[in-house]
């Protein structure tokens, strides 16, 4: 059975699922992540599923469980990179993935975690946009 690697980057655990997972692999990932969160004390988990070509009810349930378990362990989970065709399917399947936060890509996922941790957007983002258009001023 293959195993999905969990990488630690700063305060974030990054998981990029690059294989067509067996159910057992998904369950293993769920366990690995819980242990890694406790071992590292990370407060954010990003799961990149841009390489997955389907999300069926099993994968959906695993993602939801990971998010719930992480929350109990004081870590926020963001699922990033779901493909359009993949995103249309769970809707029809009746899978709503409640409690899972999502972002378009890893960058936005990191931003989202930073935002929810500090309660504000990262400060440097503010300056870049400021000069671009005088009609739209960021609120202080």
């Amino acid at each position: 059975m293959e195993r999905v690697p969990v990488l630690k980057i700063g305060d974030i655990l990054l998981v990029s699922i690059q294989i067509d997972m067996e159910d057992q692999t998904a369950l293993q990932l769920q366990e690995d992540l819980a242990e890694k969160i406790v071992a590292t004390g990370c407060h954010g988990v990003i799961i990149d599923i841009s390489a997955l070509d389907i999300v069926d009810s099993f994968v959906g349930r695993t993602l939801a469980t990971i998010a719930a378990v992480s929350r109990v362990l004081d870590a926020e989970t963001v699922v990033v990179g779901m493909r359009p065709a993949v995103a249309i399917t769970p809707v029809e399947l009746g899978l709503s993935l409640p409690g899972i936060r999502t972002a378009l890509n890893v960058d936005l996922g990191i931003e989202m975690l930073a935002f929810s941790r500090d309660g504000a957007w990262a400060e440097d983002a503010e300056d870049d946009e400021n000069e671009a258009d005088p009609a739209a001023v960021p609120t202080p």
Partner: peptide
Amino acid sequence: LKTVVAARLMGA
């Protein structure tokens, strides 16, 4: 509606 839900799943 489905599109809006799908977009949310993608993070938009």
